[in-house]
């Protein structure tokens, strides 16, 4: 198992945002977290990436306990993420965003950066080539020199994924990557996620668009009010009476 979450609990005030949540994600799979708004999906992402400390529970990644590590240490351990509300570096160019995502691939420190050293230039060149290759893969190579804020929304979502991939992580957490995309963009996103999985990347996916979830996910975890109400393959979950109740009882969340 690449990722093992056990007994994960987080309270906000008196409210349990996440209560005793556990799941396992195997390498090279797409694992989806679904559930109505406020079910605790993004909180789980924040707990895994270290943005929030859990009240109890363990998170093991490649056998290593992540609880207590800082976000940058968790990134260095091989986990990166995208954000539901985009957090691009909007004052930077498209290429610079990906280069910053590749921060972990470099070694040059503050003092060395002040000088023009051959080792630094070689490193810069290598990282830039890799970043450009990544931009080409997602079809943004033409936009490399544009300010990130100048991109249309759909491409900004893609750029955030590229930034998350740039450091060569082994697990990527995608927080509603299809939100705000049109149907063509959503389909090409789904195809891209499947392609990444073929290359061996493992992904955790929060997504409201059920069509996408059913298409790409290997396993689905359904949450409601911070509790796990079902887990299984997309087909199993779809047929689960608890899940149907949670969704239909709520509103028309199922797209």
């Amino acid at each position: 198992m690449l990722l093992e979450v056990k007994g994960l609990t987080k309270f906000f005030g008196g409210v349990a945002a996440v209560k005793d949540v556990g799941f396992k994600v195997s390498k090279g799979s797409i694992f989806a977290l679904i559930g109505p708004n406020g079910a605790g999906k993004t909180t789980i992402f924040n707990l895994i990436t270290g943005a929030l400390p859990p009240d109890s529970g363990t998170i093991r990644f490649e056998g290593r306990q992540l609880v207590g590590l800082k976000p940058y240490q968790i990134a260095a351990a091989g986990i990166t993420r995208t954000f539901q509300n985009l957090q691009l570096f909007s004052g930077m160019t498209v290429l610079e965003n990906v280069l910053t995502g590749a921060y972990l691939k470099g070694r040059t420190g503050f003092v060395k950066s002040l000088f023009c050293l051959p080792s630094k230039n070689r490193e810069d060149k290598r990282i830039k080539e890799e970043a450009l290759a990544l931009l080409e893969e997602i079809g943004l190579e033409e936009a490399a020199g544009l300010p990130a804020a100048a991109l249309p929304f759909g491409q900004q979502r893609l750029l955030e994924i590229a930034r998350a991939l740039a450091s060569g992580p082994r697990l990527v957490l995608l927080d509603e990557p299809a939100a705000g995309l049109n149907s063509t963009e959503t389909r090409s996103l789904a195809a891209y996620l499947k392609k990444l999985r073929e290359k061996g990347l493992t992904m955790l996916l929060i997504e409201h668009d059920m069509e996408t979830v059913m298409e790409v996910a290997d396993r689905v975890l359904v949450l409601n009010f911070g509790h796990v109400i079902a887990e299984g393959t997309p087909q199993e979950v779809q047929a689960d009476p608890e899940v149907i109740k949670a969704y239909l009882g709520e509103d028309d969340q199922v797209a």
Partner: peptide, 27 residues
């Protein structure tokens, strides 16, 4: 040299979004 380097980009990333910077592995 600094502002065009890996460290310069990381510094700018901090001033734009500290969350995103941390998640890129920047201390």
């Amino acid at each position: 040299n600094l502002v065009r380097s890996r460290v310069g980009r990381a510094l700018r990333a901090i001033s734009e979004s500290e969350h995103a910077a941390e998640n890129a592995g920047i201390d």
